[in-house]
C-alpha cells in the first residue's frame, strides 16, 4: 500500500502542515482519561449528584422542612395523600422524605469534601514547593512540622477539636460573612454553618501533609532540571520560577492527590456526622442520616441501604476518578 509507507512521516513536527493545530496537553489527557471506563462513569455519576444537590430546592420532591409523623417509615413510592407528592425512597422516623434529605445532605457533605480537598491541596502544595525549592533550614523546619502533624491520629483529634470548638463559639471567633456565606450556600442555619466551617478547618489542618510531602519530593527533582537552570540564567526570580516552571511540572500528581483527598475528606465528614460530632440534626448530612438509619434499623430495613449506597458509590467514584487521572496524567504512558 502506497499510503501506509508515507504515513509515519506526517507525525514529525517539521513535516506537519503549518496550519495543523497541535494537540494541547489538556486534550491529550482527556483522550487518555476517556479510555478508563469506570472513571468516566464515576465522573458522570458524580456530576449528576453535584448538579442534583445544587438544584435541590428545585428538584427535591418535598420541602426540606416537611415532616409528618403519621407517615413515618413508609416504604418506597408511597404517595403522601394531603398533597399527592411521592416518597420515592420512603421516609424516616419523622415522616421526612429520604430523597429530599439526601439531596440537601449532599450539599453539605460534598461541599465539605471539595473545600477540604482544595484547601489542603493548596496549603500542601505551597508548603511543599517552598520546602523543596529553598531546601536547607526552611525545608528542615517545615518537614518537622509536617512530621508532627502527620503523626497525630486523625479521628480522635478530630472528635476532640470539633466538639470543643462547636460547644464554645468564643474559642474560634469567625467573621460574620463566612458563616453567612455557608448559610446561603448550604441552606442551613447559623449553627450548622458554623460547624461546617469548623469541620473544614480541622480537616484541612490535619490533611495538608500528604500533598506537601508529595510536592516537596517532586519539586526537589524538578528544580534540578536544565530548564529551571536556563530560566535562572535568564535572570528569573524565585517566585516566577516556581509559578511558571516548577508548579506546572508537578501539577499532575497533585491533581491525583486532590481526588484522593476528596475521597478522604468525604469519608471523614460522613464519619464525624455519623458519630454525632459533625453537623447536627435537623440539618441533613449523609453521616447523620446514616446514624438515624442505624438507630431505626428494625423499623425501616431499607433505609441503611438508601443512605449507605450513595456513600459507597461516591467513595468509589472519587477513587476511580483518581485512578483514571493517574493513568491519563502519567507522562511515561505517552501515546
Amino acid at each position: 500500500m502506497a499510503s501506509s509507507t508515507v504515513q509515519p512521516r506526517a507525525s514529525r513536527a517539521s513535516d506537519a502542515r503549518p496550519n495543523m493545530k497541535t494537540e494541547s496537553q489538556t486534550a491529550l489527557v482527556w483522550r487518555r482519561f476517556r479510555k478508563h471506563r469506570l472513571a468516566v462513569i464515576s465522573m458522570v455519576l458524580l456530576t449528576l449528584i453535584f448538579l442534583l444537590s445544587l438544584f435541590a430546592p428545585l428538584v427535591a420532591p418535598f420541602k426540606i422542612d416537611h415532616l409528618d409523623p403519621t407517615y413515618k417509615f413508609v416504604p418506597f413510592m408511597t404517595v403522601y395523600k394531603p398533597t399527592g407528592q411521592v416518597y420515592i425512597f420512603g421516609s424516616d422516623q419523622l415522616g421526612r422524605d429520604l430523597l429530599t434529605r439526601l439531596l440537601y445532605g449532599a450539599r453539605v457533605t460534598l461541599s465539605v469534601a471539595v473545600l477540604v480537598a482544595s484547601l489542603s491541596c493548596a496549603v500542601g502544595a505551597l508548603i511543599g514547593a517552598v520546602a523543596g525549592y529553598y531546601r536547607g533550614i526552611i525545608d528542615t523546619a517545615l518537614m518537622r512540622v509536617l512530621d508532627f502533624t502527620s503523626g497525630i491520629p486523625d479521628l480522635p483529634v478530630l472528635l476532640i477539636l470539633a466538639s470543643i470548638l462547636l460547644t464554645d463559639p468564643k474559642l474560634l471567633p469567625l467573621p460574620d460573612f463566612v458563616t453567612r456565606i455557608f448559610e446561603a450556600l448550604l441552606l442551613v442555619r447559623e449553627r450548622e454553618a458554623r460547624s461546617v466551617v469548623v469541620i473544614v478547618l480541622v480537616l484541612t489542618i490535619l490533611g495538608w501533609t500528604g500533598v506537601a510531602r508529595l510536592t516537596r519530593g517532586m519539586v526537589l527533582a524538578v528544580r534540578e532540571a536544565d530548564y529551571v537552570t536556563a530560566s535562572r540564567s535568564l535572570g528569573m526570580g524565585d517566585t516566577s520560577l516556581i509559578l511558571r516552571h516548577i508548579m506546572p511540572n508537578v501539577l499532575a500528581p497533585i491533581i491525583v492527590a486532590f481526588t484522593q483527598s476528596l475521597a478522604g475528606a468525604f469519608a471523614a465528614e460522613t464519619a464525624l456526622s455519623f458519630l454525632g460530632f459533625g453537623v447536627q440534626e435537623p440539618a441533613a448530612t449523609w453521616g447523620n442520616m446514616m446514624s438515624i438509619a442505624q438507630n431505626n434499623i428494625f423499623e425501616n430495613r431499607v433505609m441503611p441501604l438508601v443512605v449507605g449506597l450513595p456513600i459507597l458509590i461516591c467513595s468509589l467514584a472519587f477513587n476511580f476518578i483518581g485512578d483514571g487521572l493517574r493513568d491519563a496524567l502519567d507522562p511515561r504512558l505517552k501515546m
Partner: peptide, 10 residues
C-alpha cells in the same frame, strides 16, 4: 541535554 533543557509544559 536537549531533552531536559526545555520546559515540557510550555
Amino acid at each position: 541535554d536537549p531533552y531536559s533543557s526545555l520546559d515540557p509544559r510550555m
